[in-house]
Computed example of a mutant assay.
Amino acid sequence: MRKALIAFTLGVAALAPAAARDTPYMIALADVLAMPEANGKLDGSVKFFMKGQATPKVQQRFSEDVSNRKTNGVNKEDVEGCKWAALSALMAFQEKAKASGANAVVDIVSYYKKREVVNSTSFECHAGAVVIGVALKGTYAKVDN
């Protein structure tokens, strides 16, 4: 009985670091927009601009919003999972932008665990043992075409 308890305890201890994995990645927004899957899901009516990235003239700013999306990371490469989670976040932004009369989301920053990371080309993604997550914050806007 004692050997079984020791074996069980060692097994659980060996799994603990894997479950606690939280690997950060910086992924280029352009890589997500270039995904073949994005072509069918993002219709082009809403443009996306990272904070610090050159944008067309902003005519009007609307509300700020956060899109926090996760994907199952089991049997997925971390970077691919990050792109999928980001695509899902952009799809949510697109839907809300259209509903608010906006044609862009500007000043996009990473907002993982409510911590802003500003980068003019990339966003932060975190991959765990089971879940991969992206949180983006941006402002809906109407920009010149």
Results as ranks from 00 to 15, higher is better:
Lys3Arg: 15
Gly133Lys: 03
Asp65Gly: 04
Asn145Pro: 05
Ala89Cys: 07
Ala135Thr: 00
Pro17Ile: 07
Arg69Met: 12
Ser88Gln: 14
Lys76Glu: 11
Ala20Cys: 03
Asn119Pro: 02
Met1Ser: 13
Met26His: 01
Ala18His: 11
Ser122His: 05
Trp84Ser: 11
Ile132Phe: 05
Ser122Leu: 00
Pro56Leu: 10
Val143Asn: 04
Val79Ala: 13
Lys142Val: 13
Ser45Lys: 10
Tyr25Pro: 00
Lys76Asp: 11
Asn119Gly: 04
Val143Leu: 06
Gly138Ile: 04
Ala34Asp: 12
Phe8Ile: 14
Gly133Thr: 03
Val118Ser: 13
Phe48Met: 04
Pro36Lys: 02
Pro36Glu: 03
Leu90Val: 09
Ser45Gly: 06
Asn119Ala: 07
Thr139Leu: 05
Asn39Thr: 13
Asn68Thr: 10
Lys98Gly: 06
Ala38Met: 07
Met26Asn: 05
His126Leu: 10
Val130His: 09
Met1Asn: 12
Met26Ser: 04
Lys47Leu: 12
Asp43Arg: 04
Arg21Glu: 13
Pro17Ala: 08
Asn75Asp: 15
Ser63Trp: 04
Val130Ala: 08
Val32Trp: 00
Glu95Trp: 01
Ser122Met: 09
Lys47Met: 10
Val143Arg: 02
Gln94Ser: 11
Gly81Val: 05
Leu87Lys: 07
Leu15Ile: 12
Ala141Arg: 03
Asn103Phe: 03
Gln94Phe: 01
Tyr140Trp: 08
Val117Asn: 00
Lys96Glu: 12
Lys47Glu: 12
Leu87Thr: 08
Ala54Met: 10
Val58Arg: 07
Asn103Gly: 09
Ser122Trp: 00
Lys76Thr: 11
Phe48Trp: 08
Ser45Tyr: 01
Ala86Val: 03
Arg69Gln: 15
Leu29Asp: 01
Tyr140Met: 12
Ile108Met: 09
Glu124Gln: 11
